[in-house]
Simulated scan of single mutants.
Amino acid sequence: MKELQRFSRKYQKEMGWEINPSDYEASRASLLNNYMLLTTEIAEVAEELRKAFNMTNHNIQQGISEEKSFELAKESVREDLGKEFSDCLAYICKIANFFEIDLEESFYSKMEEVKNRSNKDIKYIKK
């Protein structure tokens, strides 16, 4: 993750896509714009999932097994879904870099916190 953040910082500088650090209002406007772009990319992830579910349901209606239908759908959206996740990750890295957040350190720390929560979600097991 550290290497990804380093790459992201360099790439955004080369492309002229850095968050504007000149003053509060410029930073605020730039951060809000990048947040808006991130949420747009997250919506595109949802659209790829929707495509996969619709394709699965269509194939099931055509007589293909549920398992095979879902595998075909996952295969069909894999590349585009990867691109959308990459877009999301680029914006997350950009914002994290602006705030000088080490995402790798933050991730592991958060996962440890979640592991130790007393109000964990309970997984439903289908019988």
Rank of each mutant, 00 (worst) to 15 (best):
S106V: 07
N59H: 09
Y124Q: 12
E25T: 12
E67W: 06
M1S: 10
A90M: 02
E100T: 07
K51T: 04
E71I: 12
D23M: 08
Y124L: 15
R117Q: 12
E66R: 03
I125L: 15
A52C: 05
S76R: 06
D80Q: 05
K126I: 13
L89Q: 05
L81P: 01
L89I: 12
L38P: 00
E47V: 02
S69R: 06
D87Q: 04
E79D: 11
V114C: 10
N119W: 15
I125Y: 15
E18I: 03
A96T: 03
E112R: 12
M1D: 08
K51C: 03
H58Q: 12
M15E: 12
K51S: 06
S65C: 05
Y124F: 15
S69H: 04
N20Q: 08
D121T: 13
I125H: 15
T39W: 05
I42Y: 02
S69V: 02
D121R: 14
K115M: 10
F70V: 12
I64G: 03
A90G: 03
V114I: 15
I95K: 08
I101S: 04
G82K: 08
M1W: 06
S65V: 01
E112T: 13
E84G: 03
F98V: 02
C88Y: 03
L72T: 06
S27F: 05
M36I: 12
L72Y: 08
K127Y: 14
E100G: 06
I60E: 00
S118A: 14
E112C: 08
R9H: 09
K10V: 08
L72D: 05
E3T: 03
K2G: 07
Y91F: 11
A46C: 06
R28Y: 14
C93W: 05
L37T: 05
E100D: 10
N54L: 10
V77I: 00
E41C: 00
T39F: 00
A26W: 10
R50S: 10
N54G: 08
A73E: 04
A29G: 09
E67V: 04
F98P: 00
R6D: 15
S30P: 03
E3H: 05
C88S: 07
L31V: 15
I42H: 00
A73G: 04
Y91A: 01
L81S: 00
A29H: 12
V77P: 00
T39N: 03
E84Y: 02
L38N: 00
E105Y: 13
E75L: 11
E44L: 03
T40V: 09
I122F: 13
V114E: 13
M55I: 06
R9A: 09
R28V: 04
C88T: 03
K74G: 01
M1K: 09
L31A: 13
S106R: 11
N59S: 12
Q61W: 08
K2R: 13
F99K: 04
S118W: 14
I95A: 07
K2V: 14
F85S: 01
A90N: 01
A96H: 06
E84D: 05
V77D: 00
E41I: 01
M55P: 01
A90E: 01
